[in-house]
């Protein structure tokens, strides 16, 4: 006969309809089935209080339904507010040295994969450079910025903003613009990306969404890998469109504040995007909002909404 104080024993936490055991310090265990005995031990030992609470939720369908609702709200709040908020904080705190390195690496990568040397005349380059430096002082006075020209190749008429303030413009885009005001529009758009640190924010948000979605679908993805890729694409393209819209709006606001017309920018945008719209591509998967949506948003800024 062995006697030992009850406090040294632990009752395994309740879990669905699983059997429960009283565990003794020596590693032995005793199966306990009688609900009255279990209640007694639960009250006396008070082991695994947190998990008993979890079990209480699990065994009430109403509380489970509340968890479903809570889950939906939490996931939405995380993706729509918390994540963008913290991404912005982190992006603004990112030291300039880090951003310089990121930008250098990215430029090298783009150079290797897509770009060729620019074939623009030095005169034209200087002209565009002048527009750029004026805008640069207005948009990001505290941060230096740089303009580089490249031949876009397969990327065509395009412009890119890298976190350090490096803006890449393709020859095709410069040729595509009918006047310098149109070019200014595009450059302003890119400088908003620089100012708001959209690049860094996007990367942080992407990582956050990946963690979130893999937590949510962790057990399921072994069944369908598409199952996790699709929601991720949805959320990421959502973020990307938000940034594009912000860039459009802030660029338009800048022109209005400086008593310049937004019309050249709108024209440029319209001509650039009208050919890109593929019929049947759902707008919620696109990284940029549709042309009409973008123009409407800019017009809303013009009206002063």
């Amino acid at each position: 006969m062995l006697t030992l104080p009850l406090e040294q024993c632990v009752l395994t936490p309740p879990l669905g309809s699983s059997r429960r055991f009283l565990k003794f310090p020596g590693g032995e265990r005793l199966q306990v089935d009688d609900p009255a005995v279990l209640a007694f031990f639960d009250d006396t030992l008070r082991s695994h209080l947190g998990l008993q609470w979890v079990h209480f939720i699990e065994s009430h369908w109403r509380l489970v339904a509340a968890c479903v609702a809570g889950l939906v709200v939490c996931v939405w709040a995380l993706m729509a507010f918390a994540l963008p908020h913290f991404a912005k904080k982190i992006a603004l705190a990112t030291p300039a040295g880090v951003m310089d390195r990121i930008s250098d690496d990215t430029l090298k990568l783009l150079d290797n994969r897509f770009f060729a040397l620019s074939e623009l005349s030095p005169g034209r380059k200087a002209e565009v450079g002048k527009i750029f430096s004026t805008l640069c002082v207005d948009f990001v006075p505290s941060q230096g910025c740089n303009l580089v020209f490249r031949k876009g190749g397969t990327l065509g008429a395009n412009a890119f903003a890298l976190p350090s303030g490096l803006v890449i413009v393709t020859d095709e885009l410069v040729d595509f613009a009918e006047n310098n005001d149109e070019l200014a529009g595009v450059l302003a758009h890119e400088l908003v990306h620089v100012k708001e640190r959209h690049g860094v924010r996007h990367v942080i948000q992407q990582a956050g969404v990946f963690m979130l979605i893999s937590t949510l679908l962790g057990d399921m993805t072994s069944l369908t890998s598409l199952g996790s890729a699709l929601p991720m694409m949805l959320v990421e393209s959502g973020y990307s469109r938000q940034f594009e819209q912000e860039a459009d709006e802030n660029a338009s606001r800048y022109f209005l504040e400086h008593d310049r017309s937004v019309q050249p920018y709108k024209d440029m945008l319209y001509r650039l995007t009208k050919d890109q719209q593929l019929p049947g591509v759902a707008s919620f998967l696109a990284s940029h909002p549709g042309a009409e949506e973008r123009l409407q948003a800019i017009e809303a800024v013009e009206r002063g909404d």
């Binding site: 879990l15 699990e58 949510l216």
Partner: peptide
């Protein structure tokens, strides 16, 4: 299992992933 699973997910999300360890054991 549905009830265990959904409560696990909810607690994992609101604890920012900390509860994932308990969820796994459960």
């Amino acid at each position: 299992y549905f009830r265990i699973w959904i409560v696990n997910l909810f607690l994992t999300i609101i604890t920012l992933g900390i509860y994932a360890a308990w969820a796994k054991v459960r």
